[in-house]
């Protein structure tokens, strides 16, 4: 995945069984964003792999004032790339504890 300057990581161990997981997002390189982020903290949130889309979360982060509207795409892409990796890993490994 291309480096967007925004880092999204798992905020908890993923055992591959729950549809919702905790993720943590923070801006590693603010110069890559169009707008100025509200602060440089890490934002932790829960994401439902089955029911939600990265764009939903990105829009809610903008509504909540964390990022500027013009950064919607880059925030959504950063979340999408991490979610794709989690899904790929789950498809390969499956639920670890049967």
């Amino acid at each position: 995945a291309e480096d967007t300057g925004v880092r999204v990581e798992l905020a908890e161990e993923d055992h591959g069984r729950k549809s919702s997981i905790a993720l943590r997002l923070w801006v590693e390189d603010p110069k890559k964003l169009k707008g100025k982020p509200k602060d440089n903290g890490a934002i932790e949130f829960t994401f439902d792999l089955e029911k939600e889309t990265p764009d939903d979360v990105a829009q809610e982060m903008i509504d909540s004032g964390f990022f500027h509207e013009s950064d919607l795409k880059i925030i959504a892409k950063s979340i999408r790339d991490r979610v794709a990796l989690i899904q790929w890993r789950r498809d390969r490994i499956g639920p670890r504890i049967q």
Binding site: W26, E28, A42, E44, F45, V57, E60, S64, G65
Partner: peptide
Amino acid sequence: SSFTQVVHSAGRRFIVSPVPESRLKEQ
């Protein structure tokens, strides 16, 4: 504590905490 919580109108909670220095790229 240095954690702040923001709840979006759709109900999602965002918990903001400081990023460990080690994780921030050199500015």
